[in-house]
Computed example of a mutant assay.
Amino acid sequence: MRLSSMADYAVVVMAAAARHCGGARVSAVQLAEETGVPGPTVQKLVSRLASAGLLRSSRGVGGGLKLARPAAAITVADIVEAVEGPIALTACCDTGRHDCTLESACTVRPHWPLVNEAVRGALAGVPLTRLVEMPTAAPLEHSTSEYAA
């Protein structure tokens, strides 16, 4: 399972915006420069993220972008869903989709919502604040007996 590049970029852009959460507003151009995400892509993401209530945009002098709520109250699930829609690992979970050749005999379909909720729960357990922290390096583990002469 992989996120789309747009969902990935949305997480990167939101993490960059969160680093400015001390009250300062940031522009989409700044976010593009800081992240390396192309400007037009940042503009598209900012629009979706603002529509989802994750970013607040204001125009004019002193305008720019700001998180709509504290970074601790925004999760990776929120960001992914803002860009991709509800988290669903299979197309058959989408309402109104009936294009699977196995649908009439599938015994797993009723269980996909449970799997989807588990994945969503895992992503919801990662607040944006965790993505802004500097990671701590884990010590390398190696066995000296493996290399003993």
Rank of each mutant, 00 (worst) to 15 (best):
G36R: 10
A52I: 02
G121Y: 00
A124V: 05
S5E: 01
D8S: 15
A88V: 10
V115D: 07
V26K: 01
L49I: 00
A148M: 01
S104T: 13
G96L: 05
A7K: 07
A32T: 10
Q43L: 13
Q30I: 08
R120N: 02
L54M: 09
A32E: 10
H111N: 08
G60I: 11
L54S: 12
T35F: 12
I79S: 11
L114D: 11
V11R: 07
G63W: 03
L89V: 07
P70I: 00
E117M: 09
G23H: 15
V83Y: 06
T136A: 14
G23F: 11
S104W: 09
G96E: 07
Y9G: 00
R56E: 13
V108P: 06
V42R: 00
D99H: 11
M134S: 10
L140Y: 04
Q43R: 12
L49Q: 03
A82W: 01
V29L: 11
G63H: 11
G85N: 13
V26M: 06
S27A: 02
A15D: 02
V126L: 09
A124S: 15
P40V: 00
E81C: 08
M134N: 07
E33P: 00
A138P: 08
V115R: 09
R109V: 06
T35I: 04
S4F: 01
T129A: 14
S145K: 14
R56W: 03
P40R: 04
E133P: 01
R120K: 13
G22T: 02
D99V: 06
T136V: 13
V29I: 12
P40W: 14
L3G: 06
V26A: 07
R2M: 05
S47T: 09
T41L: 07
A138G: 12
L45C: 05
M1R: 00
C100E: 04
A72Y: 05
D8I: 02
